[in-house]
Amino acid sequence: MMNTTFYERSCWVSLLATLAVSWWFFAQTIPLLTVEELPDRAGLKALTSLAVIAVVLFIVVQVIGHIVAAVVTHPEDEDERDRRISLRGEQVAGIVLGLGVISTIGHILASGWFEHEMLVLLGSPFGILNLLVGSLALAEVARCLTQIILYRRDA
């Protein structure tokens, strides 16, 4: 980690924060996807609260991680290579997020046409929220991984 800039360390922090918070969020919600009945109004309210807590947790972990990264590596101004790598990461994240949104729309449409239990569950507000949060998490992981790979390939 000697040849790393603050921006590369920032990618590692974001990646670890995303993985940790996503793991926590889905550890709470995925077991609910196996229930026979769709979660009721109270269940959806609890899920929404979980999503809000996940966002707050994500921000807190990111802030603490970036403070640690800034202490370990003196932050420098972003240069043209950092900006190019950042753009490439955002491009990949955009594609992943787009695919996630399209597949969510596909699930909603499929749940209207077919009676399969899993499709009905994923097409419900409960399922849609999980799919969208999952897409966001995957897009963030893809962004961080792309940037880390590009930084490591150049190092």
Binding site: N3, T5, D79, E80, R81, D82, Y151, D154
Partner: peptide
């Protein structure tokens, strides 16, 4: 030059093409 040391390292190794300005 106004870039990071890692950018100079990448340019030296031929792994990164700098902009005309740099």
């Amino acid at each position: 030059v106004g870039v990071t040391r890692q950018t100079i390292l990448a340019i030296e190794k031929g792994k990164y093409s700098p902009s005309l300005e740099v």
